[in-house]
Amino acid sequence: MALILFAARRLFYAAILVIGVLVLSFLLIRLAPGDPVDTLAGQMGGMTEEIRAGLRSEYGLDQPTLVQLGIYLERFASGNLGYSYFFNLPVLSLILQRLPATLLLVLTALVVAVLSGTTLGVLASRRPNGLLSQFITVVSVIGYSAPVFWTGMLLIILFASVIPILPVSGMTAAAVSGGWLLDSVDVAHHLVLPAVSLAVVYLAQYSRLTRASMLDVLGSDYVRTARAKGLEERKVFFKHAFRNAMLPIITIVGLQFGNLLAGAIVVETVFNWPGLGRLAFDSVLRRDYPTLLGLLFFSSLLVIVANQLVDVCYRLADPRIKAS
């Protein structure tokens, strides 16, 4: 019963948070300069005032902002995210088409960053004053300092001109169509550079955090006690120290998931990856309000789900939280 009440309370808070995100996003988008009808008029080479007024009436842009907000929330409650001004498609179907590509990119980058960063941090903590530790520290600082778009552009230059062995644009090759196996290999081939570009910054963060957390745990009393009992160093290092040192990493994974989605917007734009980030970039340029609001809703939903999963992992990693 306690677990059910806990889950219900978290779902209630999550619902309030999503509604708050939608309301705030709606108001901020309306306050931003620009108008969807003016953008459409510019792309069409101009339109008459009658057509402009008709479009504003059709889109509901001639209503006061609070009235528009009420209409949008009413439609949202019924599962209707609106209709895209530019793509001329329902926002929900448009997002669902792009969502798998973004999830593939973000989750791949997250796995690469966590596994690689944790491994490098553990290696650096074993001999904190050694050459390997210093080398990992320097590499981590460089990776953390490099902007995502700069890393992506360098990879494009490297693998488009110097070593042309990896594709630098898109998600699939138009000429490839040989069954699910070849298609999967083709997608994985295109995924390498975007995933690496997105993972580098977070890999450096996890590496530094793991090193600091491991050094802190290795200096604790219970680790010294375990060594005094004569336990093997490998067992002390991995069973006693590493498990406790992973708790801050799990926390940061949840906190950084939103930043990872934000970084995906830049990476998808640089590599022309057909995901939500690229859709968000196009929607901002074209003042496509319904699509932007739908993207913000799904992004907040993904972040909330990620944080819930992190809570579950935290309870599994630390029995004290599970007991409480």
Results as ranks from 00 to 15, higher is better:
N129F: 05
E74N: 13
L209Q: 05
Q308C: 11
P64A: 12
T210C: 07
R234L: 08
L296N: 12
L11M: 14
L260I: 11
V223F: 03
S125I: 06
L61E: 01
I157Y: 14
D35P: 01
S197D: 03
Q97D: 15
L293P: 06
L302H: 02
Q205W: 10
V122R: 12
I142N: 01
Y289V: 14
Y144R: 02
I16R: 05
G121A: 11
G230F: 04
S140D: 09
A175N: 12
A323D: 06
V21P: 00
L301D: 08
S145V: 03
T172H: 13
F257W: 12
A174H: 10
A2D: 11
V168Y: 01
W273E: 03
G178M: 03
A32N: 03
L81C: 10
P164D: 05
L103Y: 00
L3E: 14
S116Y: 12
V91H: 03
M47A: 00
W273D: 09
A8P: 00
V187A: 12
L5S: 14
I4G: 04
R56E: 10
D183S: 14
S116K: 01
K239Y: 12
L279Q: 13
M246T: 04
R286G: 00
D318P: 05
M171C: 02
L279R: 09
Y206W: 15
V192M: 02
A306P: 01
M171Q: 12
L40R: 09
I51L: 14
A15Q: 07
I4T: 14
A53G: 04
F149W: 13
K235G: 06
T119K: 01
I4Y: 13
A175T: 11
D282Q: 15
I19K: 09
G178V: 02
G152I: 02
R278I: 05
L123W: 06
S197L: 06
I304K: 12
R126V: 13
T269F: 10
I163S: 05
V139H: 04
R75F: 00
L94F: 02
S220D: 08
G60D: 07
L17T: 15
T119Y: 07
D186M: 02
V114H: 04
S161Y: 15
V21D: 03
T225Q: 11
N307D: 06
I304P: 02
L182H: 10
L247Q: 11
L279M: 14
V37E: 04
N88F: 08
R10P: 00
S283Q: 02
P164W: 08
L96I: 00
P36V: 02
V139A: 15
A188T: 11
R52P: 01
A124K: 04
I29H: 08
V122F: 14
Q256W: 00
T269H: 11
M44L: 15
A264T: 01
H190N: 11
S300M: 08
H190E: 08
S197C: 12
E58V: 02
L154W: 01
I4K: 15
